[in-house]
Design a protein around this nucleic acid. Structure first.
Lengths: 219, 219
DNA sequence: CGATAGTCGTTAAAGATTTCACATACTTGG
DNA sequence: CCAAGTATGTGAAATCTTTAACGACTATCG
């Protein structure tokens, strides 16, 4: 099983959660079947790419019919490990951190922010979006085996906190600070840089005029 | 000039704002020169990739020396159109929207959120992060030629607002809602989906164990 | 001034991803 | 049960991106 899964292209892996969500929508709407073409219009990914993506997992559809929503959904649920909840910690309850805490992505996702940390005494002890805020000084003792962290602290604090997270045994960090943090090679870091995303959009607007050749893109 | 620029790979274009910011840091620190190797460690991009990226713009460095920070910076400033400010509108002053308004990216970026819109009467008329909040009903009349919008509204409202933005003449949308919006082919949309980013990280952690083969990634 | 170490720009190779196009097989309606 | 219509899964091509490797040139130090 893992032998198979290791072969899935990264580009495909990044689209899986997207597919999963839209399949969920379809299911909620009561749709029973869906074609790669329909799905393509919904998620804005080329239909051939969708078929190719699905094909890495085997033959999930039927020729002349399309895909059975329920079946596909249950398949993805297993593949994306939706049955077991992933516990997440959030560091930095500023504006962005608060947005995350109030953003109830745990609905479809089975990832749950279980605890938040902040350096500001005023925030410590409060509850934001149903999550307790602890003091950052207690990071190590309160982390309790959580393996994924969302980092929404000021960029000057990013590397220091990251070091502590690594020592505390974290294995993945979603870094929203502009700082590019250094971690051991067995810790995975994904960077999301809001300022850069905005600048990139502006750059593309100015330098890649699009017309009958528009192609949406990742992330 | 545009002839040249159109040829720049998209992957390179996405990294430019990142380079720009780090060069700015170096300049602030008083560094006069930098090698692709040093820069590589700072931004976590392979040094050969950096050299290749820079080379699309011509020979910016000197063999045996590296790159002159000041020169490189002034070059990027021109290339990224940092001299002219891009005006941006923000729609949806919720948690995430507020985070953006308080996030002062206008420091290095020369993109400026000039106006914000919200449907909540209580927020209308207030000022968040120095930006006036207008009622969404006045979107068209108050947009005043702004061509880039950040969309941080509930996903159910996303397509409707997008349609109005398009009619009002927007040319780029940074969409933070989970909805994949449909727009004419001459409007560029970049999607950033926080829930998906988190899910993707979790998926990679479980299925792509890394050790002496870690590779950081985009976005 | 010559030797040594450092660094770019680029060619070429490898790797990853997307897209085309079509044989194949299923569905549907009469 | 057949014919027409649909839609998958995939081989092959096209495209895009990264990486290795190295020749050419620069800086520096003794």
């Amino acid at each position: 099983m893992d032998i198979e899964q290791t072969k899935i292209p990264q580009a495909t892996a990044k689209r899986l959660p997207l597919y999963y969500r839209f399949l969920n929508n379809l299911h909620t709407q009561g749709k029973l079947r869906v074609s790669s073409k329909e799905l393509s219009e919904a998620v804005k990914v080329d239909s051939a790419t969708i078929r190719r993506d699905f094909s890495y997992f085997g033959a999930l559809g039927k020729k002349g019919y399309g895909y059975n929503v329920e079946y596909l959904l249950s398949f993805f649920r297993k593949t994306l490990d939706q049955d077991e909840t992933t516990r997440v910690a959030l560091i930095g309850v500023g504006n962005l951190g608060t947005a995350f805490l109030n953003y109830n992505f745990m609905k479809n996702n089975n990832t749950k922010i279980e605890i938040a940390f902040d350096a500001n005494e005023e925030r410590v002890g409060t509850e934001v979006g149903g999550v307790d805020v602890e003091h950052i000084d207690h990071l190590e003792e309160k982390l309790g085996g959580i393996s994924v962290a969302i980092l929404t602290v000021p960029s000057s604090a990013a590397q220091g906190i990251a070091d502590r997270l690594v020592k505390a045994g974290i294995s993945g960090i979603l870094n929203f600070t502009p700082a590019r943090i250094s971690v051991p090679s067995d810790v995975r870091v994904h960077h999301i840089d809001l300022a850069i995303e905005l600048q990139a959009l502006v750059y593309f607007l100015k330098h890649y005029p699009l017309d009958e050749e528009n192609i949406e893109e990742e992330e």
